[in-house]
């Protein structure tokens, strides 16, 4: 008996498509509501924030005022935080992606003693949340006097085990051994091969790890909270939460809620921008044509 799949015109196909669309739409709304809330709230004055319906704009468009307050409050420390976050995320993201690429390439293409064990360790490390390691990291870094410096956030963030795993899998798939061997026969050294041949073909994987590591550091809260204590070194996450704490404690915090809202909005814009920029590196088929599959 032939197996006949549902065609686009059959009633059952249309029916199941309708239900799937509804389910996805619900899920989309569920995900989008918090973002929408932030967008709406950042346009409201402090009074409107509590006095009007949360999920819709109030008549009074207070957004520019909020922005101005955000960047001037406490001598404009928010821009400092923003720059800190950008610094930490870019350095950690690029660094972590580079290390992950080196390690993934090595795991994928070389035989060495202890390879299985070290890869098992990497896989194990994927399971351990960084939060669980923050206190040991604090103790280590305080020994070498790096607490409350940018390094305290950057160094631990360079370790990104999921990235290593991703790059190993990606290199297995995207980079044929024969290509590397062709490089060797052509007389190129291993470093030359890595940077001139392998790295180019691993770019989509590199971009993926870069964005993941970048976002992980961008959103990291607990690590900088523990490891940094001067306000000048804070990233946006820690800074905003301090303002929020100030606002809820009531002391002169009346104006702060709307600023925190505007700050939240401003802090997600660069991440969205990063995603859009990195998108073009995900183009498929970069390796097409080199080796016949």
């Amino acid at each position: 008996m032939a197996i006949v799949s549902k065609t686009a015109n059959s009633a059952s196909f249309r029916n199941s498509r309708r239900w799937l669309t509804v389910a996805l739409a619900l899920y989309f709304i569920y995900t989008f509501i918090p973002i929408f809330y932030v967008i709406v709230s950042s346009t409201k004055s402090n009074a409107d924030l509590f006095g009007t319906f949360g999920l819709w704009f109030s008549g009074d468009f207070h957004f520019w005022q909020n922005l101005q307050d955000l960047f001037t409050y406490q001598d404009g420390i928010f821009s400092r935080w923003l720059l800190n976050t950008i610094l930490y995320s870019v350095v950690s993201g690029v660094g972590a992606a580079l290390f992950a690429t080196f390690a993934g390439y090595a795991f994928s293409k070389f035989e060495f003693v202890g390879k299985k064990l070290s890869f098992a360790l990497v896989l194990g490390a994927v399971m351990i949340p960084q939060t669980a390691l923050v206190i040991p990291i604090f103790l280590l870094l305080s020994k070498v006097g790096l607490v409350n410096t940018p390094w305290a956030v950057i160094l631990p963030s360079l370790v990104f085990p999921p990235g290593v795993f991703l790059m190993k899998v990606y290199a297995d798939d995207a980079l044929s051994n024969e290509l590397i061997e062709a490089g060797r026969v052509d007389g190129a050294g291993e470093v030359h091969i890595f940077f001139n041949i392998a790295f180019r073909l691993l770019t989509p994987g590199f971009a993926t790890v870069l964005i993941l590591a970048f976002v992980a550091t961008w959103n990291n809260y607990f690590l900088p909270l523990v490891l940094l204590n001067s306000s000048d070194n804070f990233p946006v996450t820690v800074g905003l939460s301090q303002w929020y704490a100030l606002a809820t404690s009531g002391s002169g915090g009346a104006v702060l809620f709307s600023i925190v809202m505007a700050g939240s909005l401003v802090s997600i814009v660069p991440v969205i921008a990063a995603f859009l920029i990195m998108q073009r590196y995900w183009q498929g088929g970069l390796g097409a044509g080199g080796v016949k599959a």
Partner: peptide, 20 residues
Amino acid sequence: LGPAERELAMVFQSYALYPH
């Protein structure tokens, strides 16, 4: 010796051209 030092050339079944 490694492949580079043998000064041979090789043509692979999969061609192994550098795609980029």
